[in-house]
Design a binder for these strands. Structure first.
Lengths: 344, 344
DNA sequence: ATTAGCACTCAACGAGAGAGAGTGCTAACA
DNA sequence: TGTTAGCACTCTCTCTCGTTGAGTGCTAAT
């Protein structure tokens, strides 16, 4: 499967050229622009070989050649220079990220924005996946009338709250009691653990507050379920308008429609392995992605819970650069979240 | 300024035709399709008059005519039939809205989705504007170590929380004390009211907890400020791909870029008057909107706080229908939020 | 006042010519 | 035997130009 050194060099030159120009590459272009020390005729012969081997394709007889998915795969696996981003660029990214420290979701959406700015492609970021979050603390706070503010804190540090209206007025004292009991019974449980049995046990312990327990528990369950849901942030959708492959309105529409199917994209991202993933063209199972490449990576929060970030663009993308940026951004995001959440 | 009845009828026919076909309308088309009982030659004469009066435009000599902004304005003000939506459609909208009851922000974003679906245009929804929200309740809840969960409740019913790390460990008892004092001092204040003097007063009252007050207060301020921020939800961006006016990739790009400037859109929506607003073409001050029309409306929450919903599309839009849908949706949303927030 | 008729205008479409980029093949060369 | 110069060939792209057709404005008849 090893290609002769010269073939590799030619292929590399073609890929590089096509990535920047988006035009089929001819033998003369290679001979002139890239100093390989061989004539265009020789390159022509090699190109014919490379086409036979499946690395190149010809849109039509009298056109130059374009790389196939197979060629990009070879490029990414063997020919790419691990393009370390310049320190200056690193600083810029870092500073942009730090610029908007706020709530977690704000950081995430801002990450998507920066990622799309630096790759000039469409960025996707998935919020952390709190699978099987355990309950850490429930607090009931009396408000006016029969209203109660309920605050649910999870081990992962996420807090949610809601205002409930009870069927009866409850003294602050009694509310405290119920609160204590609930904490005792529910601490450490996940949504899956909270069976009818558990609720039954609670009711037995405090028979006089049955109706209150019945009002509060669904809210607790919903909260746990809501937190397990991941959110998808997209940015830089309009970047594709600058790419010649999307100058056809139908292509642009199809691309946007695909990204509109958020559930599909979520699944796509969730099904990637840890670390940096590169999926090129037809390697994607989904039909509308066959002309796209995906670069995804995993960031961490609390060691356990993870989120995904990724970039999507045409197979003709600047892999060196984009992979570096995605890689650097995940590292940075992980670090940022660590500082942010685990201050002591 | 009154146009002869016949001129009005012809103009109406031209507008209706152009709205559905997007093609310049010729005199013969009007004579054939719309039963006005006059010949195409007569219509031709009238059309020449209408052009002179500024209601029609000719892309080029041998083409039909298209309505001007002035014509649409006349249409909207005088010729439109208040197209009551069919009960069936009302039911569908109502059911779709009820389908996703959840948190406020969820309802809002879902509203945007439905609005874009029913208008086949791009929908914009602004979350309620809690201007000058007053503080109602602050609660400090001890967590492990030096961490404290702080919950801020506003009069408008919004709740926010965050986890803070204090500089020292505080007993539950002391935390309670600080909490009580803060409630007493801050209740009913807005972010503008909380001056250095107020904070100074708090510090004087409880000198031993100065550093704690200093840690907590910025968070309270931030919370108040954050809540005052409105959020913009867009949906149906890809709908414009189905409109012939955006088959040109540059037009589509410009449109999307404009909607990408969220701050601009927010301002645009905030600057509308109460009730239904219609802005046609050049009536819009913003340059990129000169070929678009905007239909916006106001929904209410708690009587006072308000949010905006709107639709944006080409000046050639089905005003009758879209205005009805926007109008119906605001009414519905206001009602839905009333049921949702003020249950007792 | 309305309408039929007609000359005129102009975008849109399609055919055809020419240019240009690129190829594959052949023959000469080191 | 591998490399290269040369050349005929292919095919897209662009430009031009005539044709078509929709639509107009004007005039003269009703």
């Amino acid at each position: 499967m090893d290609l002769a050194d010269r073939k590799l060099k030619i292929l590399q030159a073609i890929i590089r050229d096509f990535i920047t120009t988006a035009e089929p590459v001819g033998s003369r272009t290679i001979a002139k622009k890239y100093d390989l020390g061989i004539s265009s005729a020789t390159i022509r012969n090699e190109m014919a070989d490379l086409e036979e081997l499946g690395y190149l394709q010809q849109p039509h007889t009298s056109a130059g050649r374009i790389p196939s998915d197979k060629a990009y795969r070879l490029y990414v696996d063997q020919m790419m220079i691990a393009n370390k981003i310049a320190q200056i660029e690193k600083n810029i990214i870092q500073n942009s990220l730090l610029e908007k420290i706020g709530e977690l979701e704000q950081i995430i959406s801002h990450t998507a924005k920066i990622l799309s700015q630096f790759t000039k492609l469409t960025a996707m970021v998935l919020s952390p996946q709190y699978r099987h979050s355990r309950l850490k603390h429930i607090q009931l706070i009396p408000m006016e009338g029969r209203r109660v503010l309920i605050v649910v804190v999870l081990e992962s540090g996420v807090v949610k709250n809601a205002i409930l209206r009870l069927n009866e007025v409850l003294s602050e004292e009694n509310l405290e009691k119920v609160s204590k009991m609930m904490n005792h019974r529910l601490q450490g449980l996940t949504v899956a653990d909270i069976s009818a049995g558990v609720i039954h046990g609670m009711k037995n312990e405090m028979q006089m507050f049955n109706s209150i327990i019945e009002t509060i528990m669904p809210m607790v369950m919903t909260t746990l379920e809501e937190i397990e849901e991941v959110h998808l942030y997209l940015d830089g959708l309009i970047n594709i308008f600058n790419l010649p492959e999307y100058h056809d309105i139908n292509k642009a529409r199809d691309f946007m429609s695909m990204l509109d199917q958020k559930e599909l994209i979520k699944e796509l991202l969730l099904n990637t392995k840890d670390g940096v993933n590169i999926t090129i063209g037809k390697e994607n199972k989904h039909e509308n992605l066959q002309e796209c490449s995906l670069i995804t990576a995993t960031y961490k929060l609390h060691g356990k819970t993870v989120g995904k970030i990724g970039v999507i663009g045409p197979t003709r993308m600047d892999y060196d650069n984009i992979i570096s940026v995605v890689d650097f951004m995940t590292g940075n995001l992980t670090k940022l979240l660590k500082d942010y959440k685990e201050e002591d």
